[in-house]
Write a protein that binds this DNA or RNA. Structure first.
Length: 561
RNA sequence: GCGCCUGUAGCUCAGUCGGAUAGAGCACCGGUUUCCUAAACCGGGGGUCGCAGGUUCGAAUCCUGCCAGGCGUACCA
């Protein structure tokens, strides 16, 4: 996971929390570990296998990423490099065969099967990082070989003429489309795809395990372990429904063949030439796509899970896809889902670097989310050390985690989600201004008052329960008191537009008003006639901050910092 | 070309769907600690709300047209 995943993850989590708080029955559905291009990762894993079992475990793929990048722009060198990679690939593949009677090659029985078995029980360690590199490698390689018309053989089961006998053929396919064949294999139910299936499952489980550690760190609740229903539902769950999706839409007269692909042409969408724009649901090679899965999933959610409103949280670049997909799903002729089901696409901007260029999602040097979070915690830890050196180490750690992670999440939440997000360590981790630490600090100050109360012989509970009328004389008291009443509006506004920044804006203003009150109105040292009302203001402010920050945004509050 | 998004203080951004003198933070200048955490508080300077029209009693907000940037636009997700 890299910084780009931060937004969808925490935005989705927050929307669920807010809607659930307002009384909706929320069913979370998370596509985690759902590598849309699983084929590329599987192919990457195959490279890892060859590297370890045939080439001395030198991580040739990591080296070749550098080489490929170095050759960019130099067509001659690039061609030579790509040719040699393709040749080695072909040799490796042909050698990976358990038993080689005439004509048999590349069944994976010699290396890949064994490799997958071993990988399953191998400690996970840096496996995830390795997979990320492998994915980049395959991506970059397929991008690079494009112009050179290289070809590589694949193994394909021939429609059996004589029953009981498997007949294979080895057609050549363009090297740059090899991973697509792997993806396509996964989508075929009866194909000879045991290895691919197993590799896919292994990758998914490694992904999931890794993501769970990040989710725990981020304090987001979007996996199965937090709920008594199935939350994690990736592409594979809908796989067997895909052929049915196509059949239904063809039968309804909505999907037709065009250039070999099966498409729906929803009204009102045009391409560059002004012709109708298709939503492709089956490619010319028979494979299904994101759109097909979405159509299967929306049916499941509306008809099986009985969802009345379905909220999709993805980046804004997918807006056209969702508009088209919604149009098809809601087309009465499709008889797909009830007309009263509300479909919402909650978009958000891209993550940009400090230079304003987008941080690439799938290639190039991504900032790893884990590293970012670790650095945030580290920096927060340094501040605690400086400000409050006498605390116990374990408490310093707890504070550093709450502050560091909170700062990162809050920075994202406090931006309008539709804007592009300029990622900056400095700003994100700054502990000043409209930030999580500012709110956490206000909360900690209130808790400190509570702790000090007993030392000064003030019984907070008794004072609060004895309070029968609240007179707010000082302007800061009145300002804070009135503002406390408006929390509900902020939550409603945040829910109505799926905008956490309405919530952060409220909480920040609340903390500001509290800080002004705190500076000007002593609580424990106040005249007895004023004290109870001030204690009440403290109590309500603490509760509001805790609810907003912790319950709705998933950012921990702390007793001291 | 068409579609979507963005354009507000030097920088990063709010502005809850038309309402009063456009708000924060950072940066800059000045002030506040024998007193509940100064990771704080108070004050100051700084704006043609991209430009031009229009609707309205009233526009950063709605409409039209430009300008600039980003993204998308048939077999990626």
């Amino acid at each position: 996971m890299h910084v780009g995943h931060l937004r969808s993850t925490i935005l989705g989590d927050c929307i669920c929390r807010v809607l659930a708080f307002l009384g909706h029955e929320v069913i979370r559905q998370n596509h985690i570990g759902d590598w849309g291009a699983l084929g590329k990762v599987i192919l990457g894993l195959w490279h890892m296998c060859m590297d370890e079992m045939r080439h001395g475990n030198g991580q040739y793929y990591a080296k070749e990423i550098k080489d490929l990048k170095a050759c960019a722009g130099d067509t001659g060198r690039m061609q030579t490099l790509c040719q040699s990679i393709c040749q080695r690939h072909t040799n490796d593949w042909e050698d990976d065969c358990g038993d080689r009677p005439d004509g048999r090659r590349g069944d994976g029985k010699k290396y890949f099967t064994l490799f997958l078995d071993k990988l399953e029980s191998r400690p996970r360690g840096d496996l995830w990082d390795r997979i990320t590199i492998l994915y980049q490698y395959v991506n970059l390689l397929e991008e690079s070989v494009g112009p050179f018309h290289l070809r590589i053989p694949i193994r394909k089961k021939k429609t059996s003429i004589q029953a009981g006998t498997s007949v294979f053929e080895y057609p050549l396919v363009p090297y740059e489309s090899l991973s697509r064949h792997t993806t396509a294999m996964l989508q075929k139910i009866d194909a000879d795809n045991e290895q691919e299936k197993k590799a896919g499952e292994l990758i998914t489980s490694i992904s999931l395990e890794y993501c769970e550690t990040i989710y725990d760190l981020l304090n987001v609740k979007i996996t199965d372990k937090h709920f008594d229903y199935k939350v994690v539902r990736g592409e594979s769950f809908y796989r067997r429904m895909l052929p049915g999706v196509v059949k239904r839409l063809v039968k309804a007269g909505l999907a037709i063949e065009s250039d070999g692909a099966i498409c729906v042409f929803p009204e009102g969408f045009k391409n560059k030439e002004g012709d109708p724009l298709p939503l492709i649901i089956e490619k010319s090679d028979g494979a299904h796509l994101y759109a097909t899965t979405d159509l299967a999933a929306v049916r499941y959610r509306a008809n099986k899970l009985k969802a009345q409103r379905i909220v999709y949280v993805t980046d804004a670049r997918q807006a056209l896809h969702f508009a088209m997909f919604f149009a098809v799903a809601k087309n009465p002729k499709a008889k797909w889902i009830g007309q009263d089901v509300e479909l919402v696409h909650v978009t958000f901007g891209s993550v940009l670097g400090e230079d304003g260029s987008p941080l690439k999602t799938r290639s190039g040097e991504n900032v790893k989310l884990k590293e970012l979070l670790d650095e945030a915690v580290e920096r927060a830890r340094a501040v605690v050390e400086q400000k409050n050196p006498d605390l116990k180490d374990s408490e310093k750690d707890r504070i550093a985690t709450a502050v560091g992670i909170g700062a990162v999440k809050y920075a994202d939440y406090s931006n309008n989600r539709t804007s592009d997000y300029v990622f900056s360590f400095e700003r994100m981790l700054s502990l000043e201004g409209n930030t999580a630490p500012y709110l956490q600090y206000a909360y900690a100050r209130i808790k400190s008052i509570e702790r000090k109360a007993s030392q000064k012989d003030v019984d907070v509970e008794a004072e609060l329960s004895g309070l029968d009328n609240v007179a707010l004389g000082a302007p800061e008291e009145l300002d804070l008191g009135k503002f406390l009443c408006r929390y509900g509006d902020a939550v409603e506004a945040a829910a109505a537009d799926y905008r956490p920044n309405y919530l952060t804006a409220y909480l920040y203003e609340l903390a500001q008003k509290f800080s002004a009150f705190y500076t000007n109105c002593p609580v424990l040292g106040a005249e007895p006639k004023d004290r109870a009302a001030r204690l009440l203001l403290c109590e309500l402010t603490a509760r509001t901050i805790r609810h907003g920050l912790s319950d709705l945004l998933g950012i921990d509050v702390i007793e001291r910092m």
